[in-house]
């Protein structure tokens, strides 16, 4: 029998994601891909996977999975709460940010988490699902990519590729990322910042926003002091990017994320820099946000810093010995 993860419970929203699907924006197809790029990349690092291998993106409550494979290796990142694995009637708790060998019949339960909106479960070798336009990422609204273009649900059997090097040691991180619940997201002025009076733009960069419950992979509505337009909220539709903060007629901004529409008809007051998109993706409903204005040079330096930061976490991976019953 080919190896699968059997889905005993689909969880709140579990999708296959990778680095995304560039090249189709002009056809109205967003890139999709992991919301928290840092945790996604570290999951693959710890699983021993090539960069960009597809993983499961999880929200809490996360799925319950049973291993239907002779053996497999898994990693949980993003959430620091860890996971519980049931084997032969015994439950053992395992830490996040490390790889763990599992075998036929093991039941994987991710501990409920509230330290991030999204966690990642990588499996060494990745998932055996179709590659569409260079990516396995699920695009929910388009109904394609990932596992049948949708979130996992009870009864699914998620096909696994085989672990090419099952005898490699498990890895753990000595240096684990810590996340803040109330990030300051650095942003560049948007292409329609001039649609707002100077004091409105200044207030945007000064005030605290609360993340509403209206949040998904497309974006999140924020609540704060209303951002009044100088003259109307409609523009002739133009291109959007993840990180863009658009302000519709309600005067309450929407921060766009990886599954956002490729074009939009609302003024964009600011755009979060790519170095801070992972932090935006981790924010939970009810969380607080600030934006800080930066220059393009600062954005480019921040991206280089984020790359250094990833490499320093990745370089802290070491072999780990403890295993079942240890």
């Amino acid at each position: 029998m080919s190896p699968v993860l059997e889905v005993l419970d689909g969880g709140l929203q579990t999708t296959i994601q990778d680095a995304g699907r560039p090249g189709l924006l002009a056809l109205g197809v967003p890139r999709a891909g992991a919301l928290d790029d840092l945790s996604f990349r570290l999951a693959n690092r710890l699983a021993g996977n090539p960069r960009g291998t597809a993983v499961l993106e999880l929200r809490s409550p996360a799925p319950v999975l049973r291993v239907q494979a002779a053996s497999a290796r898994i990693v949980l990142t993003g959430s620091g709460q860890g996971l519980a694995i049931e084997r032969d009637g015994t439950v053992q708790n395992w830490a996040s940010w490390r790889s763990i060998g599992v075998r036929q019949g093991d039941v994987i339960r991710i501990v409920p988490f509230a330290d991030t909106a999204v966690a990642y479960l990588a499996v060494t070798g990745g998932f055996d699902v179709p590659v569409l336009f260079g990516s396995q990422a699920t695009f929910l609204r388009g109904g394609f990519g990932g596992f049948e273009g949708r979130s996992l649900t009870t009864g699914d059997a998620l096909p696994l590729n085989r672990d090419a090097k099952p005898d490699d040691p498990d890895l753990t991180l000595l240096h684990v990322p810590t996340f803040t619940a109330s990030p300051v997201l650095r942003a560049l002025p948007g292409p329609q910042a001039a649609h707002f009076a100077d004091d409105v733009v200044a207030a945007f960069f000064r005030q605290e926003f609360t993340v509403s419950r209206d949040i998904d992979r497309m974006g999140m509505r924020l609540e704060g002091t209303p951002l009044r337009h100088k003259a109307g909220a409609d523009i002739i539709s133009d291109a959007t990017v993840p990180g863009a903060i658009q302000v519709p007629g309600s005067s309450q901004p929407i921060l766009l994320l990886k599954d956002c529409q490729t074009t939009g008809g609302y003024p964009k007051i600011a755009v979060v820099i790519s170095a801070d998109l992972s932090a935006a993706g981790r924010v939970l409903p009810g969380g607080k946000l600030h934006f800080r204005k930066v220059t393009m040079t600062e954005a480019e330096e921040a991206l280089a810093d984020a790359g250094h930061m990833y490499r320093s976490y990745a370089a802290s991976a070491v072999a780990v010995r403890e295993s079942w019953g240890a």
Binding site: L25, A26, I236, V241, T263
Partner: peptide, 13 residues
């Protein structure tokens, strides 16, 4: 990576 024509502008991603 992407060229997106819109009504009045071209976005170069």
């Amino acid at each position: 990576v992407d060229l997106v024509p819109t009504f009045c502008s071209l976005a170069v991603h």
